[in-house]
């Protein structure tokens, strides 16, 4: 109890919070410095900051990558802040809050995937955290990394690798056999549906966030034009006040940025849990394990 009241503890706390805020502040400054002046509908993809020469194809370092690294750093330092000063008995509010979060995540994972996958809770929590945070970053006026297909496709490929890994747990033969289910004639369709899983996951997340961004930009530009029509007859700077842009875009922002961003994070995590747990045949795995043990004994 007295450990958390020392000056050193509070200093480290403040330092961690500053470290968590620093990446966000730095990408806001980067955005202000590098944003090209433009008028009208400004809908571009992620800006390319610089290009790294690579043997096969040039690697582009874009806004999406920089922003997602900033999000990762922020989440990392927030985690350090929330786990700072853990004790066996919870004294601090943050420890109680974090214990609640971890309990909820573990209940979600074991409820959806079964007890065999209880080790998946950190992974699922990481997916929800980074996805929600990446989408919510657009509230600061920044480019949300999830509205770039490359970022969501990266996560979807990760999930695809996990699915394939858990299918291989029942042996390579079992993996090949799973395509001939229910009849071997349907194997091409099964291959297509296997490939379609990561594609649809990536497109779903990307499309939802991107549609929000597109509609917000269109509405903002439309309201600017409308207010210049209404106030355009006033002389000088008075005619340029975009008074309709105050408040109205915020209503859409609550749906597209806050609700849709959090919902897509939840859905991405739910689909990950469902696909991975349905790829793993627990009974078959147990049977193989038992067989191997019996062979060893003989």
């Amino acid at each position: 109890m007295d450990k958390i009241n020392t000056i050193k503890f509070k200093l480290i706390d403040a330092l961690l919070l500053i470290c968590a805020l620093l990446p966000l502040i730095s990408i806001i400054i980067l955005q202000i410095l590098t944003e090209p002046a433009s008028s009208g509908i400004n809908l571009t993809g992620a800006r390319i900051f610089f290009t790294v020469k690579m043997p096969l194809q040039d690697m582009y370092i874009t806004e999406a990558q920089i922003n997602s690294w900033a999000v990762i750093l922020t989440i990392f330092f927030l985690c350090l802040y929330f786990t700072h000063g853990l004790s066996e008995k919870a004294y601090t509010k943050r420890q109680i809050a974090m214990e609640w979060v971890i309990e909820k995540t573990e209940a979600l994972v074991t409820g959806n995937m079964g007890t065999a996958f209880s080790g998946f809770a950190p992974f699922i929590a990481a997916i929800i955290g980074i996805s929600a945070f990446s989408s919510l970053i657009s509230l600061l006026g920044l480019f949300p990394p999830t509205s770039d297909l490359n970022i969501t496709a990266g996560w979807a490929i990760l999930v695809f690798i996990l699915i394939t890994y858990y299918k291989f747990k029942c042996g390579p033969l079992g993996y090949v056999k799973s395509f001939g289910d229910p009849v071997p004639m349907l194997a091409p369709l099964n291959v297509i549906s296997e490939v379609a899983t990561p594609v649809s996951m990536a497109f779903r997340h990307y499309g939802n966030i991107l549609s929000g961004v597109v509609i917000s930009v269109l509405l903002g530009t439309g309201l600017q034009g409308l207010s210049s029509i209404v106030l355009g007859w006033l002389p000088g700077i008075l005619g340029e006040i975009p008074f309709l842009q105050i408040g109205i875009p915020a209503v859409l922002s609550v749906y597209f940025d806050v609700f849709s961003g959090c919902l897509q994070a939840y859905i991405f995590a739910m689909l990950t849990m469902m696909y991975v747990s349905s790829a793993f045949n627990v009974d078959e795995f147990e049977r193989r394990k038992l067989k191997k043990q019996q062979k060893k004994i003989k």
Binding site: F203, R204, G207, N208, S211, V214, L263, I267
Partner: peptide, 24 residues
């Protein structure tokens, strides 16, 4: 329901991606 809505939305989002590719 939210889960099912998200899955049902996918075809619309494919169309959105194609429309955006066609425009930009």
């Amino acid at each position: 329901m939210l889960m099912g809505c998200a899955v049902a939305e996918t075809t619309g989002l494919y169309a959105l991606v194609i429309a955006i590719l066609l425009i930009f």
